[in-house]
């Protein structure tokens, strides 16, 4: 009698551990199977490649959001920063007559603007000691309003075609943004799991006081996470702008921050900081992209898709709640 419950316990215990550590990947695999089985249109390679492109723009930002959230922060301003960096970058490009020079200027300006925007957020949080939610809510408004002002509330269109050629490039059948998302995920995973900085980000998010006592420069670590996400907003601005040939000051990057946060949470990170993973976030962003796509395929109203997304986020968090804590 003694052995049965304990071996059963053991089994349940293993299952829970598996679900806890591999949850996002299992969910992604399951979702893929269900969608592929239910819809031939979904299975088409072209459709799958489209999904990877669609998720890349917010996905790249979600990688930065992973670092920020693991470090105990949050960044609401990234969508607006994307629009701002994109607008400024295209304007700078348009001042160049030479297409190649223009392209170079665009990428440099977008990355720098993104990083600078991130540094401002980081400085407000560390030096200014503002709660990250408040600081980035403020800069969200500032970045969006600045891009509206610069672009007269309209589109900023690139004058060189090479910009669109790069943004629309397909390498080995896979769109460029998807390659970049993949590459950055791999780099991000190495950063978080194999480097001192990654470990320090986790430590600061887990308990800032302990991190400080352990001789970690907590301010610097936090600042770096915001610069990182800003930089990635610049990358995303370049790819999105290149895809469309323009950046809309009013709609570019809208709600990307929310998608990014959702992906990070679905990917298993803790909103309280200290825990999360880049590959989990990649799974999270793919889950969101696939759900949006299949709902389209099934002909579900666009207006209802947000509700489905919301339900998915809530279920993901419920599943990841620590099991053995009683109320």
């Amino acid at each position: 009698m003694a052995t049965t419950p304990s071996s059963q316990n053991q089994f349940i215990h293993r299952l829970r551990r598996l679900a806890a550590s591999q949850g996002p990947y299992l969910a992604l695999a399951l979702l893929l199977l269900v969608c592929a089985a239910s819809s031939p249109a979904f299975r088409r390679p072209q459709n799958l490649l489209n999904i990877t492109r669609q998720v890349s723009y917010s996905g790249i930002i979600a990688l930065g959001m992973t670092a920020v959230i693991i470090g105990g922060g949050i960044d609401l301003s990234v969508g607006a920063l994307l629009a701002f960096a994109g607008t400024v970058g295209i304007m700078a490009m348009n001042t160049c007559d030479n297409p190649t020079a223009g392209l170079t200027v665009a990428i440099v300006v977008m990355l720098l603007t993104g990083a600078a925007g991130g540094a401002i957020n980081g400085a407000l949080v560390t030096i200014g000691r503002l709660p990250p939610f408040i600081a980035t809510l403020g800069t969200l408004s500032i970045f969006r309003s600045l891009s509206l002002y610069l672009a007269g509330a309209g589109l900023t269109t690139a004058r060189h075609d090479v910009f669109m050629q790069v943004g629309g490039a397909v390498i080995g059948g896979v769109p460029l943004p998807a390659w970049i998302l993949l590459l950055l995920t791999a780099l991000g995973a190495v950063l978080m799991t194999c480097t001192k900085l990654g470990r320090h980000i986790c430590a600061v998010g887990s308990n800032q006081r302990v991190a400080r006592y352990a001789a970690i420069n907590t301010g610097k670590v936090t600042l770096i996470t915001y610069v990182l996400i800003g930089l990635l907003a610049g990358v995303s601005a370049f790819l999105l702008g290149g895809r469309l040939g323009s950046i809309s000051s009013s709609t570019a990057g809208n709600a990307y921050e929310l998608d990014a946060i959702a992906a990070v949470i679905i990917g298993g990170a803790s909103m309280a900081g200290g825990r999360g993973s880049m590959t989990g976030t990649l799974a999270g962003i793919l889950i969101l992209g696939i759900i949006a796509n299949i709902l389209d395929m099934w002909g579900v109203s666009v207006y209802l898709q947000g509700a489905v997304k919301g339900v998915v986020i809530i279920i993901a968090v419920l599943l990841q709640r620590p099991q053995n804590q009683q109320a």
Binding site: R199, C202, A203, S206, N207, R209, V210, Y213, A214, I216
Partner: peptide
């Protein structure tokens, strides 16, 4: 409060500093 990270593994705590 200031000494160890309860969510971190034993190893990562020992090598934190």
């Amino acid at each position: 409060g200031a000494g160890i990270l309860t969510d971190f593994a034993l190893t990562a705590n020992i090598t934190l500093t």
